[in-house]
Design a protein around this nucleic acid. Structure first.
Lengths: 254, 254
DNA sequence: CCTAAATAGTGTAATAAATACACAAACCCA
DNA sequence: TGGGTTTGTGTATTTATTACACTATTTAGG
């Protein structure tokens, strides 16, 4: 048991964030240059990922990657699927790229997809404090909105799509949505986040009625200041209350 | 790309069945004998599993195992988790066993857990038709109820427990429960299956009211015959109706 | 043939949640 | 002080949820 990389297994992280307007995902750039090191053959996007080490499990590997990229180590992380198509690395451009970086392009790699939710404000804090490598080994990490993402490496577009489906289902049954929000948030920000994830508008009054029934979303005696409109009340999520009050609903099937 | 086994990755199948009384899981026996081939060192239970082949993905490998074991190839199968603890094979008895069967006990193996639901009647049809190997290479496959399962190999007890949690969640949101029932079933059989999976009793009248509102569970004009009590009406699941009528409920969080 | 044993099948009243829908209130800025 | 902007609220209707107890239909057995 050592800490060398296991060449057969990798993890890829789909890291979501919310900037109070839209849902974002953190992606890296991949560049393939001609041997002269200058002429660009192609450029596309990848999910942050890496092979696992022989002494770590999948979750630990994903945590490692997240920490390297965001400086954060207490963020929401969950494995959501494994991608094991025997030909998942077999596109010509991916084969070229593997050869170029000195890997055996015929080596089979299976990857576990991890799903992570991060409060963007915490990322920006690290970034503004210069705690993050500005261009991360030339891979230039950037937050992308989900509607115009360019070409992606390997099967990463599929992994991303699967993660998004997973997110949509998850927010309906587990209180994970709060992992994307700042500690205190307004009802509108909360509603908007549901709307951007689900891709549909929700009725404001009915939404707030449901919100009022969520005992674990507690309303603070604090309002927005300095906004050019009626200031909104802040709410926060209480995990304590959630754990105590979660309802064991029996629903047959929905 | 060839069909040799990949020594790094395996799949393990948690195969559930329902005999109209209780929930069962299909397990194999593992025996370790002294080199004399007679004295038994230990005997325990394993989930059916195997390494994947280099030319198949995880799902295909799981299907292969299921087919070998049940003769069925159109049954419900879903990956539910990956087990990647670096020390998952490191219990002394497992190490001994790996050595005894000629494997390198220090080789790391990651396994994907698959979750399968099979209508027991179909299994018994195959079995009674002598289409199944009676003792399956000495591993004596048997359906076990979940309350008294003995010692299990590797981390298989944990995999099984995780699968059971997964099942409990899944039946509340997707129509998978019908995969365990015969084609036609009575309301009581249906309710009992929920009860044994969830481990709690449900109110009969309320259950039937919900059942009546499930448009995709259609009531047949057919009753039990030959039972020593009032014969019950049969129902069946209509996947067609389900696909057309499934409700897109918005629930915030439950 | 009558009875017992077993399970099926049904209704109501009270409470809680879901839906559709429109206008006044509070703040900043110019 | 008026205009722009976003917050925050209520009602009526329909639909689901819960708690709860008795009659009906069949076979088996004396």
């Amino acid at each position: 048991m050592n800490s060398a990389f296991n060449e057969h297994i990798s993890v890829d992280c789909v890291i979501f964030g919310y900037d109070l307007k839209s849902l974002k995902v953190l992606l890296l750039e991949r560049h393939l240059h001609k041997p002269d090191g200058k002429t660009l053959i192609f450029k596309d996007l990848t999910l942050p990922g890496n092979h696992i080490r022989n002494n770590e499990d999948l979750e630990t590997a994903a945590q490692r990657i997240l920490f390297e990229l965001t400086g954060l180590n207490d963020i929401y992380l969950e494995q959501f699927a494994v991608f094991s198509d025997p030909v998942r690395l077999d596109n010509p451009k991916d084969q070229k790229w593997l050869s170029a970086i000195g890997k055996d392009p015929s080596n089979r790699v299976i990857t576990a997809g991890f799903f992570s939710l991060i409060p963007l404000e915490r990322y920006y804090l690290k970034q503004n404090g210069n705690e993050l490598l500005p261009d991360w080994y030339g891979k230039n990490p950037c937050w992308h909105t989900l509607d115009h993402i360019g070409d992606m490496a390997f099967d990463h577009a599929r992994i991303l799509a699967t993660a998004l489906d997973f997110l949509r289902e998850k927010i309906m049954s587990k209180p994970v949505i709060f992992e994307l929000l700042p500690e205190k948030f307004t009802a509108s920000q909360f509603q908007n986040l549901y709307e951007v994830i689900l891709g549909k508008m929700l009725d404001k009054r009915n939404f707030r009625k449901k919100l009022a029934n969520l005992e674990f979303v507690v309303s603070l005696n604090e309002k927005q200041v300095g906004v050019a409109h009626k200031p909104a009340r802040y709410y926060m999520f209480s995990r304590d209350v959630y754990e105590r009050k979660r309802k064991e609903k029996f629903t047959l099937i929905t």
